Simulated scan of single mutants.
Amino acid sequence: MSRPTYIYKLVSHSTPVPEPIPETLPLSELDVQSGFIHMSTALQVSRTLKRFFAEEPRVYVLRVDYSVVEKDIKWEDSKGEAPGEVGGDGMFAHIYNRGLGAAEIESVVVWERNGGNWDEALKGAESWLVY
């Protein structure tokens, strides 16, 4: 598969993204435990959102220019245990040895969960979610 233009970080409503975005955002508990920052491609955002943020009332979605962080990415399964090809099926972009902040984040949106699911937010974001 081709290399993505953007990759995305979903952030819980309980840790709002400050404005302006600082030089480095704090890591999520999962990212600290894993030793890398979990990212999703535009094609993976829906599954990530529905699996890990199903009960959240809102999420922050950070769009990161892939070319800016590419040298620090390993494509691996979700647990970081099996390497794979760029954008491969079941492979996720994991950022190692660096944080994310103003220099890497191209834009941020806030999505609200309406009617008990994320479908409306995802439909409204189709043009923003770019592989």
Rank of each mutant, 00 (worst) to 15 (best):
K74N: 05
A102S: 11
R51H: 12
Y131W: 09
A82C: 02
W118S: 06
V68N: 05
F52S: 08
T15R: 04
I37F: 04
E106M: 06
R51D: 14
P4T: 08
E55A: 13
S67R: 13
L43C: 04
D72Q: 14
L62Y: 03
S14I: 13
E120V: 00
E112I: 12
A42S: 07
G87V: 00
G116D: 03
H38A: 12
E126M: 02
G124Q: 04
L129G: 02
P18K: 05
S46I: 12
S67E: 15
L25I: 07
I37N: 05
K74V: 06
V109H: 03
L62K: 11
P20S: 05
G84F: 08
A102V: 14
T5H: 07
V110W: 01
T48F: 09
A54E: 12
E19N: 11
E106I: 00
K123H: 07
V110Y: 02
T24K: 15
Y60C: 10
E76V: 08
M91F: 00
G116P: 01
I73D: 07
A125Q: 02
P26C: 05
A103G: 05
P57D: 12
L10A: 11
V61G: 05
W111A: 01
I37H: 02
K123P: 00
R3S: 12
W128K: 02
L62I: 00
L27G: 06
G90K: 01
W111G: 01
V130N: 01
L27Q: 08
G115W: 15
E112R: 09
R63K: 15
K9I: 04
S28P: 11
S14C: 14
R63N: 08
K79S: 10
V68I: 14
R58C: 15
P20I: 08
L49S: 09
Y8L: 04
M39W: 11
H38P: 05
L25M: 07
G99L: 04
E70R: 15
L100G: 06
E23N: 03
P4K: 03
E70P: 06
E55V: 10
G99I: 02
I105K: 07
L43V: 13
G99H: 06
S28E: 07
V59M: 13
K50S: 12
D31L: 12
A42I: 09
E56L: 08
N97K: 04
V68C: 09
A103P: 02
G80H: 07
S12R: 11
L25Q: 04
V64W: 13
L100E: 09
G87N: 10
